[in-house]
Computed example of a mutant assay.
Amino acid sequence: MRSFNELHSIDEVNQFKDNHQLALLFISRPNCSVCHGLLPQVKELMEDYPAIKLGHVNADEVQEIKGYFTIFTVPVILVFVEGKEYVREARIVHMDLFDQKINKIYKNLIG
């Protein structure tokens, strides 16, 4: 299963999203049961999309992430295409719909 790059600052997050054509950012907190349940599902789904780079941010560690991306709850999944946000999913993520959104972007960019 693919692993996520741990990002520890806003600067690292910006470099991550700006330096990859396709980037997924998973924002969570350690005591969030929904986060812990969703992360393995996202990891499994991302097996089908190897060109998407994966990043993880602990919102307790990087507290400014909330204001930076206007986040009100966790988990949040942000998908960036060439540094621009294209998909945002928060809290309860319907994996089949999320997969459809990712697949459409992926096919248009990667083929």
Rank of each mutant, 00 (worst) to 15 (best):
S9C: 03
S9D: 13
I10E: 09
I10D: 08
V13I: 15
Q15F: 05
Q15W: 00
K17E: 10
K17F: 11
D18N: 15
D18R: 13
D18H: 08
D18L: 12
N19T: 09
N19H: 12
H20R: 10
H20V: 03
H20K: 12
H20I: 01
Q21G: 01
L22T: 06
A23R: 05
A23H: 06
A23C: 07
L24C: 08
L24R: 02
L24I: 09
L25G: 12
L25F: 08
F26E: 03
F26L: 11
F26M: 08
I27D: 01
S28G: 07
P30S: 06
N31T: 09
N31Q: 02
N31M: 13
C32S: 14
S33G: 04
S33E: 13
S33A: 03
S33P: 12
V34P: 11
V34G: 08
C35A: 03
C35W: 02
L38D: 01
L38E: 04
L38M: 14
L38W: 01
L39A: 09
L39S: 08
L39I: 05
L39C: 05
Q41A: 10
V42F: 03
V42D: 02
V42K: 09
E44T: 10
E44A: 13
L45W: 00
L45T: 04
L45A: 09
M46P: 07
M46C: 10
E47R: 08
E47D: 10
E47G: 02
